[in-house]
């Protein structure tokens, strides 16, 4: 474990709880893409199947349980409890256009042709594009609530910190995973546009609105 990965995991945890609290407190999921949340739930479920078979540490197992539980809870709040506030008119990204190609790629490009490894690879590839429905929804509505932009900033920062973690681990531990690094770069690059808007607008107290 290193500071980059620890701060990255905490940033990830913060993002998930900022969103969960926003929906719970405001009793509304306006401006939030339920499709992205479904993809994130799929990412965690397919990635943490080794939860009971491959014990790394208490921290690792605890975080896996928290990530799965909080993301499933978010999907539940959006599609069941506060379904009336779900903005399906703007959450129209065809996620099958993400899941199918990612699934195919996971079969073709992986470290080991075993079920667990292919599911892990699928999860890594899917996570890199899982935010697209959310970014697409913001581009359609033209703006995002400030709390939602904080959620996105924390979520985007987590994988950027993981990139630093992989640089650190490469030089100090000789650890390198090309699939995770490439997917992590793609994932972080997708946030660049948002990061620019967040830093130039939200940091100065303005609302995040995309140029019309």
């Amino acid at each position: 474990m290193n500071i980059f990965r620890l701060v990255g995991d905490l940033s990830h945890l913060l993002a998930i709880f900022v969103l969960l609290l926003k929906i719970w407190k405001s009793r509304s999921c306006a401006g939030v893409s339920g499709k992205s949340q479904i993809l994130f739930a799929l990412v965690f479920i397919t990635r943490y199947l080794d939860l009971f078979t491959n014990f790394i540490s208490v921290y690792n197992s605890l975080m896996k349980v928290i990530f799965i539980a909080s993301t499933v809870a978010t999907v539940y709040l959006m599609y069941i409890k506060f379904k009336a506030t779900y903005d399906s008119n703007h959450d129209t990204f065809r996620i099958e256009f993400l899941v199918v190609p990612v699934g195919g790629l996971a079969f073709l490009v992986n470290h080991d042709f075993t079920p667990l490894e292919i599911l892990w690879t699928f999860s890594i590839y899917l996570e890199s594009v899982a935010i697209l429905p959310q970014l697409f929804m913001i581009s359609k509505t033209g703006e995002a609530e400030t709390i939602t932009s904080h959620y996105l900033f924390a979520l985007g920062s987590y994988r950027a910190l993981y990139l630093l973690n992989w640089i650190y681990r490469y030089y100090f531990e000789g650890y390198f995973d090309l699939i995770a690094v490439v997917a992590g770069c793609v994932q972080t690059i997708l946030y660049c546009d948002f990061f620019y808007l967040y830093i130039t607008k939200v940091m100065w107290g303005k609302k995040l609105s995309l140029p019309a």
Partner: peptide
Amino acid sequence: KKAKNKKDEL
């Protein structure tokens, strides 16, 4: 190489 298969990251 073995170390890589140990998925120790979230």
